[in-house]
Design a binder for these strands. Structure first.
Lengths: 231, 231
DNA sequence: TGTACATCAGTGAACGCGCGTTCACTGATGTAC
DNA sequence: TGTACATCAGTGAACGCGCGTTCACTGATGTAC
């Protein structure tokens, strides 16, 4: 989907280039003043163009934001998908390997953390305070499903045998979100949710600055929380 | 601190009343369009006054936001402080009691969750994406310390004896944030951080809507995460 | 290879809007004798 | 109790700003014969 198979004309290529530059400047602007202050006019000025020119490339402000949101989701999903690739070859510092070239939970946790720290504003655009009045496009749920699938792969491989509690029973009957893995045991579902919520807990507090001044290394808390998953 | 001992004059009382009404309308506006869209003019209009009138009550927009942030912190700290009060008397659904009238971790967890769900925007003002260009007043750190103190009380009571890992060792040497409990064992510090980060993990994902459409009850995930703390 | 036409990028002026904030002023409320 | 004065709430006009977006238009680039 997206790009057609046909060769790009120079004009199409140029269009694509300008669109990319607009998005780049948009990210810079978000970094400076947050997503809700995104201004088409300001971006145009920064690019040395007049404001209305941007309307050749984006129908309006909302479409630009939507594009940024989509790209943010995409980049995380791609990072997850690519996590397994270099697992065997790279001489990393003991990345958790799930076996069979599949990324383990520890590796995915590192990918998530790196992605988050790489760009705080991108993180917050996806996982921060919802932008008021703005509704994310539905195709982000499809991208989230992609990520979940990778995560559930790791979880089914590393989940404990049978630890049935009351919550696991609830999950057994409420697994729409794990559509890609209809046969995953409840313990794996539970593990995926623990991964997701615990790591976001540390990251969102850290990136919002709630650990600064506490004299504590967030990276070590993160590592400790990762440890709780596979133990 | 804050209010002087002297009896309030009618004028002071009136001033206080108007200030409260301004803040009330401010919260309503934040609920509608987010904190970064807070507009003094709009609040004034809603109160049937002209814009400049508000400058009698707040020096500028930033001072109003600061006041809201402070109130938000305050309300959570008060909720924590009051958690122990009704523990023995109330006929709740099995609130975890820490003994000696002190609130247990389970009780504090419920307080936190209730506080968060009571007003999503208040939650996000404190724990969500930082408002760009705005710096929270430093006295919020003092309020946070209050909360931490209550939390650490519960944690020292409920922490396991000695579970020394590499992270606990790190904590033993980095405990500035736990100044109120200089003798708390590392396992208690670890427990407090787990409480804080895991519960915010669930809450921030839930309140940002990341569980909607997943067909999953966030309250049960929350309860399950609370269980992991005391186990 | 050259000409005629269609496509498209970008401009500048304009519209209407709401914002934060200052300022000079009016009118009501409280205070001192 | 009544008068003179000070304090303070609130108004309306104004300043300068930037925003999103529309529109008619110019000029360059590509396409068809």
């Amino acid at each position: 989907m997206g790009t057609t198979g046909r060769t790009e004309t120079p004009r199409e290529r140029y269009r694509q280039q300008v669109r990319e530059e607009v998005k780049e400047k948009a990210w810079q602007q978000i970094a400076g003043s947050g997503a809700s202050a995104l201004s088409l006019n300001a971006i145009a000025k920064q690019m040395g163009m007049s404001g209305p020119a941007l309307y050749r490339y984006f129908a309006n402000r909302d479409e630009l934001i939507t594009e940024l949101v989509r790209d943010a989701y995409r980049s995380l999903a791609d990072a997850f998908a690519g996590a397994g690739a270099g697992a065997g070859a790279g001489g990393g510092d003991g990345d958790g390997d799930g076996g069979a070239g599949r990324p383990g939970l520890a590796a995915l946790a590192q990918v998530l953390r790196r992605w988050a720290l790489e760009d705080r504003h991108r993180y917050f655009l996806v996982y921060g305070t919802p932008v008021p009045g703005y509704h994310a496009p539905q195709d982000t749920t499809a991208i989230t499903a992609e990520m979940m699938s990778v995560l559930l792969d790791a979880c089914t491989a590393e989940a404990p045998g049978e630890a049935a509690g009351s919550f696991e029973e609830h999950l057994a009957g409420h697994r729409e979100w794990a559509g890609s893995h209809p046969d995953a045991p409840p313990s794996a579902l539970r593990l995926a949710l623990a991964f997701w919520s615990r790591l976001h807990g540390v990251l969102s507090l850290e990136l919002a600055g709630h650990f600064t001044g506490m004299g504590l290394d967030p990276a070590r808390l993160y590592a400790a929380e990762v440890d709780t998953l596979t133990r």
